[in-house]
Nucleic acid binder design. Structure first.
Length: 488
RNA sequence: GGUCUCUUAGCAAAGUGGCUAUGCACCGGUCUGCAAAACCGUUCACGGCGGUUCGAAUCCGCCAGAGACCUCCA
């Protein structure tokens, strides 16, 4: 009995019990990356957050179709809004074909996600592969009277929509405020109102990414792809739509309006948003230029980094904060995560060799329940991790005999680790490269030799072996029974 | 300027109207040939000022500071 899952719905601004629209199936759509640059720490947060949700839902027995898109067209540059999109701009700069850029950074994203042990989504559609679907949505919106054409471009008529619907529901905005406050951008003379947004944009002659359409040769608007692809793969209504908090407005607000204008109903039951990662208290973002790429984190190759951090350290660091809170980056915080994670994993490894007792002095079932409660409460991973550290404490105390665990409870603890640490939190033990039988044997020979040196009180030889092994990343842990070792 | 959010110990980060969060660091101890690891223990909190309450860090108000969105961004 696991209990009920509660998730925070941005639309309602409250935690709600998760009830699948069409049990046991769950449709989950998450806004993926725009592939025009290296994946950075910020990209890791939604990927990991919704990876946890994906894993949890599957564990709870749901059949989840998880769609996470790749945006490879259509996002306009704000300052170069003459109809040049990000991908095309980057392409011109680097003298590459746009699709080369897309391929390069899609691969880069995938490599990084794999390193972070983020599961592949069920479907990973590309915007460029769904131009026809996007055009069909535009046509529906036009037919329903919520869009107009100007010069070959199609715009969404927000005021018209607002007459029969409410624009701003998701982001909590008032349309009158928006009309007053939206900054006047260049090239908006085609629009009837400043907050109208493009559904289809006519391409300038020099613009390379373009597709034919009934209205003009051009490309789809900023927000359309998610509507088109979520509808195609998850149906007109689906359970959960996720993404970064920075996408809430205007992206998701526009998406919500578009979908409703096209389909005549609300598509999404639960909207979920992860908060940002900050650096020195400020959002880490592409446009601010203060981001650290995942590759840099993994290699330690960045002026802000004191050392390299393994993908699992990054993952654990992200999970030690609740997904709806900002998370502040620092070397100290990352190093704390690194050490904490090592302790967690060590405790798990200790489990197998534990001496068991008749009766436990600790209530393991209760701990397990607390773990469930934590993760089911809006994915409260920091609380879950706090409980897991309680398990660490018990395991270590059992090892030295100040607590006792029965054989059954040891196996329950093992299950707890396997379920929560590995299956749900998605931590994997880095079975370090080359750590094969041969290495094991070689290290064993050395360590046995060291043990003999110790018995002969030949401390200098013993220390030399210890130090030299440490230099190549092998840590020896002495104990009363002998020794164990692990890779750094 | 508008809308919204946040402010917790050295760092990071949960939670809660009355009960030690947690991790890392620090300090003391156990263990060790010495370390490391592990364990035990101690210290250090809830931005400021008021209000509600038997009791508030937790609810309300004001003030201060920080941030997010309003423009592409995870």
């Amino acid at each position: 009995m696991e209990g009920k899952l509660f998730i925070y719905n941005s639309l309602k601004r409250t935690k709600e019990e998760f009830v699948a629209i069409n049990y046991p199936y769950v449709g989950l759509y998450v806004c993926g990356p725009t592939v025009y640059g290296e994946a950075h720490l910020g990209h890791a947060r939604p990927a990991i957050t919704f990876d946890i949700l994906f894993r949890l839902l599957q564990h709870l027995g749901y059949k989840v179709r998880y769609v996470r898109n790749i945006t490879d067209v259509g996002h306009l540059e704000n300052d170069a809004d003459q109809g040049e999109d990000k991908i095309a701009k980057k392409a011109r700069v680097e003298q590459l074909e746009p699709m080369e850029i897309v391929q390069l950074y899609t691969d880069n994203y995938h490599e990084n996600m794999k390193a972070l042990n983020v599961k592949s989504p069920s479907i990973e559609p590309r915007a460029s592969g769904h131009i026809i679907e996007q055009q069909q949505i535009i046509q529906k919106i036009i037919d329903n009277g919520f869009a107009y054409e100007a010069n070959g471009s199609i715009y969404f008529d927000v005021k018209k929509y607002n007459q029969t619907n409410k624009y701003g529901l998701l982001s909590g905005r008032n349309i009158d405020d928006l009309l007053e406050n939206t900054r006047q951008l260049d090239g908006q003379e085609e629009k009837r109102a400043s907050l109208d947004f493009a559904l289809w944009k006519k391409a300038k002659p020099e613009h390379i990414m373009r597709w034919p359409s009934p209205w003009s040769d051009g490309f789809p608007g900023w927000h359309l792809e998610c509507t088109a692809m979520s509808t195609k793969y998850l149906g007109e209504t689906f359970d959960i739509h996720g993404g970064g908090l920075d996408l809430l407005f205007p992206h998701h607000e526009c998406e919500l309006a578009q979908s409703k204008a096209a389909l005549g109903k609300d598509s999404v039951k639960y909207w979920m948003h992860n908060n940002m990662i900050t650096i020195n208290g400020q959002k880490m973002g592409k446009s601010l230029g203060n981001f650290i790429t995942l590759k840099e984190l993994f290699s330690g190759n960045h002026t802000l980094l004191e050392q390299a951090y393994s993908p699992m350290t990054i993952r654990f660091f992200i999970l030690q904060a609740h997904y709806r809170s900002t998370l502040d980056f620092s070397n100290d915080a990352l190093q704390a995560s690194e050490k904490g994670l090592a302790r967690l994993i060590s405790a798990y490894k200790v489990l197998d060799g534990l001496e068991t007792a008749e009766k436990s002095t600790y209530n393991v079932e209760e701990l397990k329940n607390k773990c469930y409660q934590a993760i089911l409460d809006d994915l409260n991973t920091p609380i879950l991790i706090a409980h897991l550290f309680e398990a660490v404490k018990i395991i270590n105390a059992t090892k030295i005999g100040t607590e006792k665990l029965s054989k059954e409870d040891v196996s329950v603890l093992k299950q707890v680790f396997e379920l929560f640490v590995f299956d749900i939190l998605g931590i994997k033990i880095d079975e370090n490269a080359g750590n094969g039988e041969l290495l094991n044997n070689v290290v064993s020979i050395l360590l046995n030799y060291r043990q003999k040196s110790k018995e002969n009180k030949d401390w200098s030889t013993a220390d030399e072996i210890r130090n030299e092994l440490k230099e190549i990343g092998i840590i020896i842990k002495d104990s009363k029974e002998g020794f164990t070792w692990e890779m750094e």
